[in-house]
Design a protein around this nucleic acid. Structure first.
Length: 208
DNA sequence: CTACGGATGTCCT
DNA sequence: GGACATCCGTAGG
């Protein structure tokens, strides 16, 4: 995939929404692991009080956000690895956090990496990296196009409905706390914190 | 099935 | 020494 094709000319919020339904795949020596993106959050750089680059904060740890579109940003939070993609031009530190995946390939490997039941396999940002076997910052700062990670250029599935909500575990950040910058496939069971009663177990929230 | 609180590893101040 | 873009087990309805 050409990174520019996927990321050009759109706001980070639009890109987050558009990524739903695309397939993320990871080529490993043991095999290919892949899943459809069902949840993503946008973080809007220096002005966004919930973002790592708020007020232009720039450290070795968040350097990847300042890279060109398609730069992989891996960071750890309380011992878990998070997967982000930088979306805008160099030195414009906006990015997308991938928060939920519906597995499509390599589920046996995922279960080996993360022995958990049902949707618990990949329904959260720390969970999906564990299932994929991303246990280091090895991919940090790489471009998607130069890495074993790829995102399909087209949607594999069409969401029946897209929900936009406040971002998860972002609190007390003024106006930015409640902005609807989290996008997910409504009723898909691999969306984090999805209530059982809200799940569509027939079509998983996709158009039929 | 939901809500809550403790565990947890880095990074930055 | 504090602050986290989290996860899981347990307790209670």
């Amino acid at each position: 995939m050409i990174d520019d094709q996927l990321f050009s000319g759109k706001s980070t919020a639009e890109l987050s929404r558009d990524l739903l339904g695309h397939e993320l795949s990871y080529q490993t020596p043991a095999g290919i692991l892949a899943g459809i993106i069902v949840e993503a959050e946008a973080y809007l750089g220096a002005k966004d009080s919930a973002a790592h680059a708020y007020k232009g904060r720039r450290t070795p740890a968040n350097e990847a956000l300042y890279g060109p579109p398609g730069t992989i940003y891996i960071y750890t939070l309380r011992g878990h690895h998070m997967l982000d993609i930088a979306t805008q031009a160099q030195d414009q530190p906006e990015g997308i956090l991938i928060r939920g995946l519906e597995p499509t390939q390599g589920q046996e490997l995922m279960l080996k990496n993360r022995p958990q039941k049902n949707f618990n396999l990949t329904n959260g940002p720390g969970k999906l990296t564990q299932a994929l076997g991303i246990t280091s910052k090895e991919l940090n700062l790489l471009l998607l196009s130069q890495s074993p990670l790829t995102i399909s250029a087209q949607r594999i599935k069409e969401p029946a409905e897209i929900a936009a909500t406040a971002r998860i575990n972002v609190s007390s950040r003024g106006d930015w706390t409640d902005k609807p910058l989290r996008f997910c496939v409504a009723h898909n069971p691999y969306v984090s914190q999805m209530r059982k009663s809200g799940m569509d177990l027939t079509n998983y929230g996709w158009q039929v």
